[in-house]
């Protein structure tokens, strides 16, 4: 965990809601693991006040760089989308536990919902031996699907769903997963990130098929380092109902550990 200044290399608009923010901070880039995140100060001043957490989306340690995927949600993300090359951002990272990597013989399947693509794309980059495996990505509409060229160069098979059917399968990404698991599921290891309702369904399908599943959670966060307990999520803790911190104990949890209701 380091606090440092990152240099903004540029932003790239990926659709009406998404931007890619390219940053340079070699000390952080070299440590970053898939599923970990940075906690960054958007701007000087008191509004927005708190830092914002973003998963690593892509890293290039040889150049000391990494990308964050910014989905426009409010003032903080809008300000980030407007950063110019040469500006600096104060950031703390890498934070959180990251995704455990598959054991030999396990076949990873990735399931993203919306902006949940962010950490899973980096995981797909790292899991080079899983090329040819399936990456499911669901969104509301065509404009929220991008990165298709990057996926084809990575070698993962991308299967897309949209709620309005404007591209790919019309429906939910969990429908695609369910259909897939009903046929081939031996040795599957599921990784997922996205909205709560979708994660809950992925967790249910994994449980039903007795498959291990890692979920990456998000939540309102204050400190980002485990001190404040603001980002608590209800979990089974040593067999009892309790809380874990998304920032420190997570953001990646075993689907079985999380209390979904």
């Amino acid at each position: 965990m380091i606090q440092t200044k990152a240099l903004v290399l540029g932003t790239q608009r990926l659709g009406p809601l998404f931007y890619r923010l390219k940053l340079k901070a070699p000390s952080i880039s070299s440590l970053a693991q898939p599923g970990q995140f940075v906690h960054l100060k958007v701007d000087e001043g008191y509004d927005p006040l708190l830092r914002r957490p973003f998963s690593f989306h892509h890293t290039d340690p040889s150049q000391g760089c990494f990308d964050l995927l910014i989905k426009l949600r409010g003032k903080g993300t809008r300000l980030l989308s407007q950063k110019s090359p040469g500006e600096e951002l104060d950031l703390i990272g890498p934070l959180g536990n990251g995704f455990p990597l598959p054991h030999s013989g396990q076949s990873p399947v990735l399931v993203a919902g919306g902006a949940g693509i962010a950490p899973l794309f980096m995981l797909a980059e790292r899991l080079t031996s899983a090329r040819g495996n399936l990456f499911f990505w669901g969104a509301k509409r065509k404009e929220e699907i991008f990165l298709r060229d990057e996926f084809s160069s990575l070698g993962w098979r991308l299967e897309i769903s949209t709620e309005d059917g404007s591209i790919g399968y019309r429906g939910l990404v969990t429908d695609l997963l369910q259909a897939y698991l009903s046929k081939a599921k031996d040795n599957c290891l599921i990784y997922t990130c996205g909205p709560w309702g979708m994660l809950k369904e992925v967790a249910r399908l994994s449980g039903q098929n007795h498959l291990p599943c890692w979920v990456s959670l998000e939540g309102n966060m204050a400190c980002g380092v485990g001190a404040c307990w603001g980002c608590a999520v209800r979990c089974k803790v040593e067999g009892k109902l309790g809380y874990r911190r998304i920032c420190k104990d997570g953001p990646v949890f075993s689907a079985e550990e999380v209390i979904w209701d």
Partner: peptide, 23 residues
């Protein structure tokens, strides 16, 4: 003390609200 159910924090203009519940 386990603390309160989430969400426990939210940002407000120039401030934040917390309801950690002494976890």
């Amino acid at each position: 003390t386990p603390g309160n159910p989430p969400p426990r924090v939210v940002e407000t203009p120039c401030g934040m609200l917390n309801s950690i519940g002494l976890a």
